[in-house]
Amino acid sequence: MARLRTRNHKVVLSRSAGGDIGISIFLIIFGLFMFIPMYYVIIQSLKPMDELWQYPPRFYVVHMTFQNFADMFNAMSDSWVPFSRYIFNTVLISVVGTFGNLVCGSLAAYTISKIKFPGRTALFRLVRLSLMFHTTVASIVNYMTMSRLGWIDTYLAVIIPAWGSTLGMFLMKQFMEGNISDAVLESARLDGSSELRTYWTIAMPMVKPGWLTLIVYSFKDLWNMGSSTYIMSEQLKTFNYAVQQIVSGGVARAGVGCAASVVMMLVPIAVFVFSQSQVVETMATSGMKD
């Protein structure tokens, strides 16, 4: 048996140098593969015209400029909708959609995890099942539903379904299960607090990481939404749609395309950075159990 190493009366776990080197090499190579494309988009967005055309392409910028970001607002000039409108649409959809998902999802997560009512297990199993398939399979019937509701070509068609999206709700329920003590809820109920009040004043403040996780996922999905089959009017289309138009506009708009992509990606990344430790905490309770 290997000798047990200790330092300051603590056990030192055995770590071979070879393993350390192998792991570092893996992380560096794979990390570069992940990082370089992102880095390159950012660098390209900061380059002036003449540097964009340098050949072979360079991975640094000499004369940094924000001109591409300014030009972004004129890049969709062949569209009669002002560029800010696309941004407005995406912000509106993301904020209202995420807020609704937070309200509906946390209410459902709370009731299912903390109130013992008949049917809760069956409902949760359905939610869990929904994680196993892509919502594309619902797209045909959804189109029919939307047109019957008269929601085609309105914000409602993209916002309302997001209120019932399941991933955030699922993670929140799993997190609530382990992080809200039933005894506290029980004493609140005995004091005559209604379920809605218990949910809002006692349960919700205890599961802030769960909230943030739901927000991160819901927001990311909505923010990154491109063209939707339900939306035809140009003035209702999203920022991601506009970015794709610019990027596919070809070489003439390379810098602007990168600038738009940077704006596109920085927002969800910022939201994630802000809540990273809480998301990871929530993930510690993620699992497929009932």
Binding site: M38, V41, K220, V243, S248, S261, M264
Partner: peptide
């Protein structure tokens, strides 16, 4: 980051 940054894969 790549998984949350929308259409950046167009690069």
């Amino acid at each position: 980051a790549p998984s949350i940054s929308g259409g950046v894969y167009l690069i």
